[in-house]
C-alpha cells in the first residue's frame, strides 16, 4: 500500500516470500517462545508422528502473516486482529508465501477499518494456513518507502579484513537487560532438565560463570562483520570457537542493564591439523548502567582453510 492512497477492496497484499524455511528459523522460534516440541527440529520425531519431515511451527507462519500486514501498512496503521487456521503442515526447506487481499473497507472518522483475507501458500500454491485480519489505518498524508537494504561487500583479505573488523576501534555496542526468565532458561538448558521439572526450583540471582557468552553480540548474530570471509577463494575445512575467557569484577545479576562494547584484536594465522588456521579474537567490555566495568571477555574463533583447494570444489 502506498501511503498516499486508501486501500480498496480487491487490493492485493504481498506476497512476502520465504523461499526456503530453515531449521535455524525454527530453532530461533523455539527459543524465543520456549516451545521445544521435537517435531520442529528432530526429523526422527517428526517421522514417528507420521509427518513427512520437520514441520514449520504454525504460529511462525502466523507471525509471517503479521509481518506481511505490518510491512504493507508501514507507519500508516495497525493490525487490530488476526485469526488463522492451520490446514496443512509445511516441511522445513520448502517455500512459504504470505499473501492477502482486501475484502472490505469501512470509514470510521479519521480512520479506515480494513478487513482482509490472508493465507500462507507453499511452493506449489497450496494454502497451508488461511485466516482473516482487521487493520485500522489513518488517512494518509505523506509517503515514505522503507530504506532499501543493499550494501554489497566484495572479496579480499588483509587490510579489508582488518577494516571490516574495525580492528582496534569499537566494532559495536549493544545493551542487554538480564531478566530472571533469561537466566532461568539458561540454567535449565545447561542442567538439561525441562522447565516443567524445575518449576519452583530456586534460580540464583547471580548468573552462572559462562553467562557472559550469552551477552556476546557476535554469537547472537547482532554484530556481523565477517561476511567477507565467506568470499575467500579457499576451501573451508573446519572451524568453530577456539577459546573463551572472562574476568569478572563482580557477578552478573538479574536486573543488570549491561552495555557490551566489542573490539576486534589483530587477526592472526597459523598452520594446524585442519589446514591454515585463521583466528579472529574479539574483546567484550561489559559495563553496568552506572558505567562500572562488570566483566571483560575474549572470544576466539577459528576457521580452517585448505590453501591448495578452491572453495566449492
Amino acid at each position: 500500500m502506498t501511503a498516499t492512497t486508501s486501500p480498496r477492496v480487491g487490493d492485493e497484499i504481498g506476497p512476502l516470500e520465504v523461499r526456503a524455511t530453515t531449521l535455524e528459523d525454527l530453532v530461533r522460534w523455539a527459543g524465543a517462545i520456549d516451545d521445544y516440541s521435537p517435531i520442529h527440529f528432530d526429523p526422527a520425531a517428526a517421522r514417528d508422528r507420521g509427518l513427512p519431515g520437520v514441520v514449520v511451527n504454525g504460529p511462525w507462519k502466523a507471525a509471517l502473516l503479521s509481518r506481511l500486514l505490518t510491512d504493507w501498512l508501514g507507519e500508516s496503521g495497525t493490525v487490530t486482529g488476526l485469526r488463522c487456521e492451520y490446514r496443512r503442515p509445511d516441511v522445513v526447506g520448502g517455500t512459504v508465501r504470505a499473501r492477502g487481499v482486501v475484502s472490505a473497507v469501512t470509514r470510521d472518522g479519521a480512520y479506515e477499518c480494513v478487513a482482509c483475507e490472508v493465507w500462507i501458500e507453499d511452493g506449489a500454491g497450496e494454502r497451508t494456513v488461511v485466516g482473516t485480519a482487521t487493520l485500522r489505518t489513518r488517512r494518509p498524508e505523506t509517503g515514505g518507502a522503507p530504506p532499501a537494504d543493499g550494501h554489497g561487500r566484495a572479496a579480499l583479505i588483509g587490510d579489508r579484513l582488518r577494516d571490516a573488523l574495525r580492528v582496534g576501534a569499537e566494532a559495536g555496542r549493544f545493551t542487554y537487560r538480564v531478566e530472571a526468565g533469561d537466566l532461568a532458561r539458561f540454567v535449565h538448558a545447561v542442567g538439561g532438565r525441562p522447565p516443567a521439572e524445575t518449576v519452583g526450583t530456586h534460580v540464583p540471582p547471580e548468573a552462572p560463570p559462562t553467562y557472559y557468552a550469552v551477552l556476546d553480540p557476535v554469537e547472537r548474530r547482532e554484530l556481523q562483520l565477517e561476511e567477507l570471509l565467506d568470499e575467500l577463494p579457499f576451501a573451508k575445512t573446519g572451524g568453530g570457537n577456539a577459546f573463551n575467557e572472562v574476568e569478572y569484577e563482580r557477578p552478573i545479576r538479574v536486573g543488570d542493564v549491561l552495555t557490551v562494547v566489542t573490539t576486534y584484536e589483530e587477526p592472526y594465522e597459523r598452520d594446524g591439523r585442519a589446514g591454515r588456521l585463521l583466528f579472529r579474537v574479539r574483546r567484550n567490555d561489559v559495563f553496568d548502567a552506572d558505567g562500572h566495568l562488570v566483566a571483560r571477555s575474549r572470544m576466539g574463533h577459528v576457521l580452517a582453510y585448505d590453501l591448495d583447494r578452491v572453495a566449492g570444489r
Partner: peptide, 17 residues
Amino acid sequence: VRYAGAASDPARIHFDE
C-alpha cells in the same frame, strides 16, 4: 536446541544434522 535458544546462538552445526 534449548541451549541454542537460551544462549541466542543460532550456529546450525549444533542442531542441523
